[in-house]
């Protein structure tokens, strides 16, 4: 009886601990992003937790890519883009005057939809960021470690000097993940990382994400709802709203544990989107 009771209690605890006592890595408070006069996202409030996978889902144009790009100041690269509100990373205002955007991007890496390896060797792709950042000590070990973490090492260890462009799409994407994690970031942002890949390569990326969350905080934007349901611990649903002045803007509609979003969402708009009724 005692053993049974213990098991039941453990099962109960496992379920409720998703975000409960986790530390928030990002805290967004009323974050809006404008492209010129156009408001792309409107007053987003969200906490993103350490060593969890957070998925951002929503229809096209809802600002989910815009939002993920604010998290490592990629929006800085768009001249007309402007952010209001406050976005804190580990308690520090990410857009504060003394924050170095390059350092931000070392700590918060990013992987894009289309694999974009440099036209260099497999080895140099991973070593590139390390060299730029002066992390040249034990370079071989660092490259191997990154490739192992990206579950690519066994496939490429005998051809590290070959061009990265000769790899398959799925391998290229894992190489980009290796490149992102080589510089030892704390967070990896993934913007539709598997949407250009076949189901087998997709599954490899999803397994990899599951492995990586032991050491990293992951945020993924995905169009594929089943992917969010499979990989994410927390899911944020962004919706599209038309303001009285006719501006189409993204808003955070609902943010909760993934299981909740896909079994019993609180908001009708989330329900409509995840079931495919509209959106």
């Amino acid at each position: 009886m005692e053993a049974i009771r213990t098991r039941i209690e453990l099962a109960g605890q496992g379920r409720s601990s998703t975000a409960g006592d986790r530390e928030a890595v990002f805290e967004a408070r009323d974050v809006s992003v404008f492209y010129g006069d156009q408001r792309a996202i409107d007053r987003v409030n969200i906490d993103i937790y350490q060593r969890l996978i957070t998925a951002i889902i929503g229809p096209s144009g809802c600002g989910k890519s815009t939002f993920i790009r604010t998290l490592n100041r990629m929006t800085d690269l768009v001249p007309s883009a402007r952010l209001t509100g406050e976005l804190r990373y580990r308690g520090i205002d990410l857009y504060g005057p003394r924050v170095d955007a390059v350092e931000v991007r070392r700590r918060i890496g990013m992987v894009f939809q289309k694999p974009n390896p440099f036209p260099k060797s497999i080895y140099d792709n991973v070593a590139y960021g390390l060299r730029i950042l002066g992390m040249k000590k034990d370079l071989d070990e660092r490259v191997e470690k990154a490739l192992r973490s990206a579950a690519l090492w066994d496939e490429v260890k005998d051809r590290l000097k070959d061009s990265a462009l000769g790899l398959s799409g799925g391998q290229q994407q894992r190489l980009c993940i290796a490149r992102a994690i080589a510089v030892e970031p704390e967070v990896v942002l993934l913007d539709e990382p598997a949407s250009a890949l076949d189901p087998i390569a997709t599954s490899a990326i999803e397994d990899l994400m599951h492995e990586l969350k032991r050491d990293y905080t992951l945020v993924i934007v995905t169009h594929n709802m089943q992917q969010a349901a499979r990989v994410a611990d927390m899911t944020a649903f962004f919706g599209l709203e038309v303001s009285p002045d006719g501006n189409r803007q993204g808003v955070l509609v609902e943010y909760d544990e993934t299981e909740k979003i896909f079994t019993n969402p609180s908001d009708k708009r989330t329900e409509g989107y995840v079931t495919g009724r509209f959106g």
Binding site: T263, P265, T270, T275
Partner: peptide
């Protein structure tokens, strides 16, 4: 059809 949310229930 992988039903979710209200349809899954």
């Amino acid at each position: 059809q992988t039903p979710v949310a209200g349809e899954l229930r």
